[in-house]
Design a protein around this nucleic acid. Structure first.
Lengths: 209, 209
DNA sequence: GTGGAAGACGAGCTATCGCTCGTATCCTAT
DNA sequence: ATAGGATACGAGCGATAGCTCGTCTTCCAC
């Protein structure tokens, strides 16, 4: 396997001026990733677009990968803030509305910055941040599993771990695919949400009657 | 968006000797992709591993991307041959066994060469082959949709297009995730297949009774 | 058996990459 | 006011990338 470059920031920025520099670098990285893709995102170009000298760039980030990792981090934080909130709120809801909310937030999360999300989804493996993203997936999975456990009596599934995996993976994939590759479906997002909800419920809930 | 390099082969190999050269190049590309990743797969290195001079490489492929595209192509062909066969066979099967077979073949297909599949899944967007892969997905989707239509009377879903999208996307995602990131699940692949089958059937079939 | 097309070769060009380091400027504690 | 740490600068180094082109070798139709 390939050797991993360091992806941690080099030092904290302590003065306001330098914090602005760091922000500009991360922002410029995100913009270049979206506009030109990972390959054309050279450190020189990033520094340029940030209006910062290449020397300053290397004061804060040891490599291009570290910069991309910072972008990923920022994006993930945005997503998880939203997902965590909603998946915590659903605890008190009945199954049907809980699942509907979960599906909706998955779509919402993917729509936060779809173009960036797409580039990142493609580039994350190369930056060696896969574990971190796996950790996020696992958190979503764990939150959902927690909910299932609290409602175990109302479910027809027995292996809640497996069920949570199946649900979380599918919901994520549906949201991901729809947002990134089938935007026309979002014109009637409600219909998609309803269908996905029926999908999940048909699996989780015992047949009526 | 980034400028696209040409990805078409440069010329056909007509003599046996040159066909061997082309094969060696594609094979070497695949091996280096798996072993070292896309970034370290330089044309010089590929030519080296193939035991072919760099000049010969450029006689047949105009760029590194073209070589990777050839690898993708070969791999996709392997996968689709299998998937097409099975999805055609299921036409005569009742829903339950048809879905089970479909799930099984999705997993099977991802297991053909998982390490290569993983690298390719990550790198395909950069090679601009996304449409081609989308075409494959659409073929899988269309085949499955055809089956659903032939059984429409036995289903509870109404929008078969949407249903096929939901099923195909989920099955693919479950197979993909399990094979690439949760190999421990494959120790009991039967259990996974059964669960996924229940999952899909709960959505497609009307409640019993 | 020979001429010309097909194939193979690899030194080396240009471009760009990631990155360092010596120097200049700014900020703040005293 | 000023010392000295924090911050910013950017010319330019070494490495490596993709790729060309002039030359040599092999194959095959006649």
């Amino acid at each position: 396997m390939a050797r991993k470059p360091l992806t941690n920031p080099r030092k904290e920025a302590s003065q306001a001026r330098s914090r602005a520099t760091v922000d500009a670098l991360v922002e410029a990285t995100a913009r270049i990733l979206v506009r030109d893709g990972f390959d054309k995102a050279s450190t020189n170009r990033i520094a340029d677009m940030a209006g910062v000298s290449i020397g300053s760039l290397y004061q804060y980030y040891p490599s291009k990968e570290a910069l991309v990792a910072a972008v990923i981090d920022r994006h993930n934080r945005q997503i998880m803030r939203r997902v965590r909130t909603v998946l915590t709120e659903i605890a008190s809801l009945p199954i049907e509305s809980a699942v509907r909310r979960a599906v909706a937030v998955a779509i919402e999360a993917h729509r936060i910055d779809p173009r960036l999300h797409r580039v990142l989804a493609e580039q994350i493996p190369r930056v060696g941040q896969l574990q971190n993203v796996e950790a996020l997936n696992r958190e979503g999975y764990a939150l959902f599993r927690g909910y299932l456990e609290s409602r175990r009596g109302e479910l027809r599934v027995t292996d809640l771990g497996l069920a949570a995996f199946v649900c979380a993976t599918s919901i994520e994939a549906l949201a991901h695919t729809a947002v990134l590759y089938h935007t026309e479906m979002l014109l009637d997002a409600e219909a998609l949400i309803e269908e996905a909800t029926r999908f999940i419920l048909g699996y989780l809930q015992p047949p009526p009657g």
